[in-house]
């Protein structure tokens, strides 16, 4: 296997890491309000991902950085061509990132409300747009002889791509619900479990339809049928496990489904990295990659560092593996004050 192919695989791994890990972060962000009865519930949701969301996001930075290093043309064509959706994603990620840290800093409902909205925008927008962008890869885009994307903005949002956006959106919603079911305790967890079971079915249907469409209309490789089959099995697994209230299995199955979706995307475009609607203009592993020396240097770096990253991120997940409940969330000053006032009033109220 040549190094360019290795880097194609490695970038697929980085995207898998990103979408599996941020998938539940986005899901938690989207479900923060619907699943909450009060502020404590919202904080409970946020705190399930509190220590890890930032590390999860770095998988994206690394995927983009690795694309720059290993396939400069892919990086340049993709980022300049998909300018507007990427701009929206960046704005969303900016708003979301500061929200987690700033939301709890001022103890007023209005302040929290503003940041909650930012968390929601920051979760819904990328959850949808990443799917749109990946669907564009699968379908192929208009590229000219100079490796420039010339398809325009509207072509990015055709029906196939919009359905692709619905796929990531629904998978991440389910992922978030299952994650919350796995990470919380008490009555909140019961609600998360119930919601996960309800979300699993539509996300399986939407994903199933798109996967078939992608395979029949756009895949360039027959072996991806195998991936389609396993995705289908994983989706069935999610539905079954959420019904059976086995959140551990549900989480694993959904993670597998998301991961294999990335495999399907990358598998169906191989050996292109960005297929052109005219195959002659496709960016491929051969014509978009960096030099062999550069790839070799990066391979050594990745070979040593990726396992280390997996090791300490795994350890972090273990450190914070304990379930949280409403009682885990220390009350904010205003709530303490309200409780104190309520306690004093109790005798006077019959």
């Amino acid at each position: 296997m040549d190094l360019a192919t290795l880097w194609f695989l490695l970038i697929a791994v980085l995207w898998t890491g990103y979408l599996v890990l941020e998938g539940f972060d986005f899901g938690v962000g989207m479900l923060m309000r619907p699943l909450a009865k009060d502020n404590t519930d919202r904080r409970l949701a946020i705190n399930t991902i509190g220590p890890i969301w930032d590390g999860n996001e770095v998988w994206l930075i690394t995927a983009i950085g690795a694309t720059f290093a290993a396939f400069p043309h892919w990086y340049a064509t993709l980022l300049s061509g998909f300018y507007v959706p990427l701009l929206l994603i960046l704005v969303a990620l900016i708003l979301r990132g500061v929200s987690f840290e700033y939301r709890h800093k001022v103890d007023t409902p209005r302040w929290r409300e503003g940041w909650d909205r930012c968390i929601e925008i920051g979760s819904w927008v990328p959850a949808f747009l990443w799917g749109v962008i990946f669907a564009n890869f699968v379908r192929g885009v208009e590229i000219d002889g100079d490796m420039q994307y010339v398809g325009g903005l509207l072509a990015i949002f055709d029906p196939f791509a919009l359905l692709g956006g619905a796929v990531t959106l629904s998978l991440f919603l389910t992922h978030g619900a299952v994650f919350l079911a796995l990470k919380t305790a008490g009555e909140y967890q019961q609600r998360a479990v119930a919601l996960a079971a309800r979300l699993a079915v539509p996300s399986a249907v939407v994903t199933g339809v798109w996967v078939l469409w992608a395979q029949l209309a756009h895949s360039r490789n027959a072996w991806t049928w195998a991936v389609v089959a396993v995705v289908a099995a994983a989706l069935v697994g999610v539905v079954a496990a959420t019904r059976a209230r086995r959140e551990g299995w549900a989480f694993t199955s959904n993670a597998v489904a998301i991961g294999l979706l990335v495999v399907l995307v990358f598998g169906s475009i191989f050996p292109a990295v960005m297929p052109g609607t005219d195959p002659a203009t496709s960016l491929t592993i051969a014509n978009a990659s960096a030099s062999p020396y550069s790839l070799m240097v990066m391979s050594w770096v990745a070979l040593f560092l990726v396992p280390v990253v997996l090791l300490y991120q795994g350890w972090t997940f273990k450190v914070f593996s304990k379930r949280l409940s409403r009682e885990s969330i220390p009350p904010q000053p205003s709530e303490l004050a309200a409780a104190a006032a309520g306690g004093e009033q109790a005798p006077t109220a019959p």
Binding site: T62, A69, M298, V301
Partner: peptide, 11 residues
């Protein structure tokens, strides 16, 4: 240019 950028992310 991509190499130090990717190293920065990884390391």
């Amino acid at each position: 240019f991509g190499a130090p950028l990717a190293m920065e992310a990884l390391a």
